[in-house]
């Protein structure tokens, strides 16, 4: 199983109402992006961290490792905002290279940090949702908010087939390894190409067999399935309303300031 998929099935927040988790994540993300406030980003990071690790029971080291992935990318991409090459030094820092300075201002430094924290806080909202909500629950929420059926059904089938094709690719790769198929770069590339072509053929065959099996169960062009019900809890709704209300007030205040 893919780690992130496995974690959401073991999360203690798995059975919390999916619409509640979805609403919380999306609204919080929205406020983070609109306000661009450092304080709000730090607050959201802290709250999502506590919810995912303490409440959801996701191991801290896993959460930390997943947070590090966008952080590394963000730091590299924000360097372009922070660092300038100029003939005149700016106020924050300056390193002379010949007639030029590798320099940055306090304003750009602040903007860079603001961007990193806002993006991290937004990512933490999505992590909260994906670490604590199985894909099927997310799809049922998308259905409830009237996302087109075709899109939801496609996502459901793609999600199922990712695992099926991963299983096949692992088996093929193991079989190639056992016959020294990945001995060097040349054989590895050849083996990968062979695996890709077999996977395509298998995917086609599997999709044909799957369609037959669905037809055998009176499939009429629409994937009608039931979702397990986890009713919303008033206490959870209360805290979401309070938290999002605070974020709304803070966002309005930061924009009027």
């Amino acid at each position: 199983m893919i780690t992130i998929d496995m974690l959401c099935y073991y999360s203690r927040l798995r059975y919390a109402n999916a619409m509640e988790k979805f609403t919380y994540s999306v609204l919080t993300l929205l406020f983070c992006v609109v306000s661009r406030s450092l304080a709000m980003a730090l607050l959201v990071l802290a709250v999502n961290g506590i919810l995912t690790v303490r409440k959801g029971g996701i191991p801290f080291y896993r959460y930390w490792r997943y947070m590090m992935i966008p952080l590394a990318f963000l730091i590299i991409s924000t360097l372009a905002v922070i660092v300038n090459i100029s003939r005149t030094p700016l106020d924050a820092f300056a390193f002379q290279i010949g007639n030029y300075y590798l320099t940055g201002s306090y304003a750009s430094l602040y903007k860079g940090v603001q961007m990193i924290l806002t993006a991290l806080a937004s990512v933490s909202c999505l992590y909260f949702l994906s670490f604590n909500t199985p894909m099927t629950d997310i799809l049922s929420v998308l259905k409830k908010i009237h996302c087109p059926d075709l899109l939801v059904e496609l996502m459901l089938l793609i999600y199922r087939y990712i695992f099926l094709l991963l299983d096949i690719s692992f088996s093929i790769s193991t079989s190639q390894d056992s016959r020294l198929g990945n001995r060097n770069l040349k054989t590895s590339m050849k083996s990968f190409g062979a695996m890709a072509s077999v996977l395509l053929i298998r995917a086609m065959a599997k999709s044909g067999a799957l369609y037959d099996s669905m037809e055998a169960r009176c499939y009429d062009g629409r994937l009608k399935v039931l979702d397990e019900q986890h009713p919303p809890k008033s206490k959870e709704i209360f805290w979401i309303v309070i938290f999002e209300g605070l974020l709304l007030i803070f966002t309005i205040w930061s924009k009027l300031k």
């Binding site: 089938l157 599997k206 399935v225």
Partner: peptide, 18 residues
């Protein structure tokens, strides 16, 4: 080749809903 859904509950409900 038969199980298309990601959840056991959804999978079983498919035929009867049809």
């Amino acid at each position: 080749n038969q199980l298309f859904s990601a959840s056991v509950y959804q999978e079983i409900s498919f035929g009867i809903l049809n």
